[in-house]
Design a protein around this nucleic acid. Structure first.
Lengths: 219, 219
DNA sequence: CGGTAAACGGACGCCCCCGTCCGGTTGGCT
DNA sequence: AGCCAACCGGACGGGGGCGTCCGTTTACCG
């Protein structure tokens, strides 16, 4: 899979490279706003190119997705790294939850891709695996600090992301607002508290069809 | 649950009535499992009738939806009534949340219809309005009893339903399990607790395009 | 400035869904 | 038994998305 097309010099003609960027911009805009079900034709139209041009640059939809969401994936990773860097693991975890929820609220397409609603997109899956692994460590530390409830399971975060995906508001602003409130609710539900009754058992979630999240954090 | 199709005598021929039932059964099964995006052709195929027959009985998709989900709507209402009948409003509210979430987890199509992901379906909207009104009273009492956090807003329940809708698992069993755990989390987040920090402000949600839920419970 | 290879995009055929029409079939009543 | 009306479902035309082909244009280089 080609990630760095502009690394080798002059592999693309100038107009081709220009179109490529235009296609990516259009894809990002449309996928973010309307999800992954946007017809590729529509992307091409918005980019001002013919369908053939789009298919030449991105033979399949997943190649387009992989490139279009590279930014978001990096943002995701940055958020997780920032959370992990926080000396207070609970605060770090809260930050991760809030920021990731907001990121997903702002970009519907990325959410669908991240949760592998769309088949393929290995790059995203790989990025997600890294993210999951890092958060697992954060959660473990938060538990040891006594701030995160002990019956928390990593799949709960996937649960939260899926749930966050379900939230839909009319405007982008409301969407972020609603997601923020939701994150607040979730965080309070996760916080260790003597009044907390034990939760129902966790379920195996269909994550990327590769089985549930496997991490080494719950021995 | 049988609505009144057989109230007017002999309005339909026996084979017509038989087909009608078969179509409704097929619709219920497919909508429940796969959501509302199932092609009507598929419903007809499963019912063992031609497309024309389906369209004759249900000229538009919403007429089919309205009848297909009448049962679920009644179940919904029954759950709410049961919750309201509980002398402990908090326990009643918890019951409502748990049962409604499970109901929605078992029936994807009903969830979409209930949240008006699909335009039309006035009957559902009316039923939803009743439900919302009743739950509003329950929430008010739970607040007065000091068990429900005071910054709870009725829209939070819509938020929860939308979130619950986002949860998706491979099997129906996992789906219910995941939804149950989610409901548990939400309930704990809703419970009044001195450790609770205030939540982010509620957002206006896009509910049925008719503006946000309007109830008289928060004067 | 001219040649060439690369890139462009309009157009094509395929498939699926939709909603409707019409000739054949069957239930119900006398 | 027999008739009629109601009902059935295969078939049709329309629309839209998909992925590909090919004649034309254009950037690059000598």
């Amino acid at each position: 899979m080609r990630v760095v097309t502009d690394r080798l010099p002059h592999a693309l003609r100038s107009d081709a490279l220009d179109n490529r960027e235009r296609i990516l911009d259009a894809a990002r805009a449309l996928f973010s706003a309307d999800g992954l079900d946007v017809p590729l034709r529509e992307v091409a139209r918005r980019a001002g190119v013919g369908p053939a041009t789009l298919y030449r640059h991105f033979p399949t939809k997943r190649t387009l997705l992989a490139e279009a969401f590279a930014d978001q994936l990096h943002a995701c990773r940055a958020i997780v790294d920032e959370g992990c860097a926080d000396p207070d693991p609970w605060r770090g975890l809260c930050l991760v939850i809030e920021r990731i929820c907001e990121l997903h609220a702002r970009d519907r397409g990325f959410t669908e891709a991240f949760l592998s609603a769309y088949p393929g997109a290995e790059d995203l899956a790989a990025g997600r695996a890294y993210t999951v692994r890092a958060v697992a460590g954060l959660a473990r530390r938060a538990k040891e600090a006594g701030r995160l409830r002990s019956d928390f399971v990593l799949d709960d975060l996937i649960l939260v992301l899926m749930a966050n995906k379900g939230i839909r508001a009319a405007s982008a602003a409301s969407q972020v607002k609603a997601s923020r409130r939701f994150a607040g609710l979730v965080i309070q539900a996760f916080e260790a508290c003597p009044r907390h009754a034990p939760l129902p058992p966790a379920a195996r979630l269909a994550s990327a069809g590769r089985g549930p999240v496997d991490d080494g954090s719950t021995p």
